[in-house]
């Protein structure tokens, strides 16, 4: 990715922020929220996030990981347990990161 491409990508992302946050504020007259958007909204954001997360957790260089000695797995397990316990995203990140650092730095996983 060149710098120019990066800038184009980022400016595009900023326009997407403006477009989505302002969508129903753009027309001069009120537009009712379409049913398909209401329904699709239930799944599209969830799917987009999961589709990014799953390969980041489960794959290394395009292959499913084939060892349990990967710091990411215990980190995700710890983060999951924390979320189920406290329902708090920040603590989820911190607990997972703590386990990751412990295994990476302490055990060289």
């Amino acid at each position: 990715m060149s710098t120019v491409e990066g800038v184009i990508a980022i400016v595009g992302l900023a326009l997407i922020t403006l477009l989505t946050r302002g969508l129903f504020l753009i027309p001069e007259r009120e537009v009712p929220l379409p049913a398909w958007l209401q329904q699709g909204l239930r799944y599209a954001p969830l799917a987009a996030v999961v589709a990014v997360v799953a390969p980041e957790v489960l794959m290394t260089q395009g292959r499913l990981i084939d060892t349990w000695q990967d710091a990411r797995l215990p980190a995700v397990a710890a983060a999951t347990v924390y979320y189920l316990w406290r329902r708090d995203i920040l603590g989820t990140i911190l607990s997972g990161t703590a386990v990751l650092l412990l295994l990476r730095l302490g055990f060289g996983w």
Binding site: L46, E56, R72, T97
Partner: peptide, 18 residues
């Protein structure tokens, strides 16, 4: 240290909340 993974963990938490 692999701290970029914190971003993935953040998205994981967001996933759970959905």
């Amino acid at each position: 240290w692999g701290l970029g993974f914190a971003g993935t963990l953040a998205l994981l938490g967001i996933t759970y909340s959905m």
